[in-house]
Amino acid sequence: MVFLTGIRIAGTGRYVPPLTADNNDFAAFLDTNDEWIRSRTGIVTRHISDGEPSWHMGLEASRQALEAAGIAPEQLGLIIDTTITPDYSTPATACVIQRELGAVNAMAFDVNSACTGFVCGLDMAARYLATDPALSYVLVVSNENLSRVVDYTDRSSCILFGDGAGACVLERRQGLYSAYMAADGTGASSLYANGNRRTCRFATGEHTYPEDTDPRGDFLRQDGKAVYRFATEAMPRAVQQVLDQAGLGTEDIDLLIPHQANLRIIETAAKKLKFPMDKIMVNLEKYGNTSSASIPIALDEAVRSGRLRRGQRVCLVGFGAGLTLGAVLFEY
């Protein structure tokens, strides 16, 4: 899908909890070490929530994005939140952030596309902006409290994840915008975390909760090999799709910002694309995998460091549980 009406990122922001855990902290209670984690993932440290709600992290990132955009909360017409670790089943996290911001004129809802969430949210925002002339600004915010669902006895997964939030304010602009979204539900069991599994058979009068046969069953579970195979295929496929739709080549991308899952995944996908690593934003060594928050955190860091400048073409690409994948290409 290519729009003649594109998007402009008016402002970005990010927030990470002050508490950090480096690889040696994990080695203190797991059979692992710093070299083992670095060589397999590229991760050195990650930020861990010390009780901050998901909405609070998203709120702080959103305030930064609004400040950078130079707009008041009342100017927002829509808030899209992409968390997979909400504080409540209902209301939507976006509604809590709307309240705290004082964005009284904004509609608000949540999206769950796991690590692809920010890309999906941004694409939804682009579609709203393209079809609603009364809409001026959209806030897309991703906030993840993955420490809530990580099993810290599982060495293969717990070392990967961190907490944090990223946000951006979008507005309408004429120009390049290409997007590709896809899903493969046959791989849903490759990466999952159980939700509320309680059942209540009201019709038969059995109003009891069954025993949980797996005391750790609500933690995040993943088939590492299956996820790796999917990710190393999904990332180059999604990027190539948006390029083909726009009639461009990899040489036309100034900066590629992928989901920060694992350095090996990014390097393997880059080789398949024949895309140089020096044009890829990688910051997972500082944050680990923050699911849907990883791309907007990296985006904000790229903007504030001057690595991404006005007029440059940027491609954002995500892949994750679902299984889902998506990419967007536009001019910053």
Rank of each mutant, 00 (worst) to 15 (best):
I37V: 11
A231P: 02
L122D: 03
G187K: 08
H259Q: 12
D278E: 15
Q98E: 08
V111R: 00
A69Q: 02
L160S: 05
G70L: 08
R8F: 10
D244K: 06
L263T: 11
G306N: 02
S294H: 05
V239S: 00
R40T: 00
R221Y: 15
P86V: 11
R313P: 05
W55C: 09
I9H: 08
L263N: 02
T268H: 14
T45E: 14
F202I: 15
A125V: 07
G217E: 09
T12N: 05
L170W: 00
G117A: 04
Q240V: 03
L59K: 11
G311E: 02
T290L: 11
I71V: 13
P296Y: 00
V104P: 03
G224T: 09
E267Q: 15
V328A: 15
K272G: 00
Y128A: 14
T90Q: 11
G70F: 09
L255P: 06
A94G: 06
R304N: 15
G102F: 12
E331T: 15
R216G: 13
T268Y: 10
D163L: 09
L220Y: 03
C120L: 03
A167T: 10
Q260G: 05
E301S: 11
S54T: 15
D212W: 01
L255E: 08
T290R: 07
P18A: 13
D212K: 09
A114N: 06
M124R: 12
I80K: 07
D123I: 14
T5R: 13
M181K: 02
V111S: 03
V239N: 03
R309K: 15
G288F: 10
G121A: 02
R197S: 15
D87V: 10
S142Y: 03
G175A: 06
G77H: 03
G195I: 09
D132K: 13
I295C: 02
G187S: 01
R310D: 14
T208G: 10
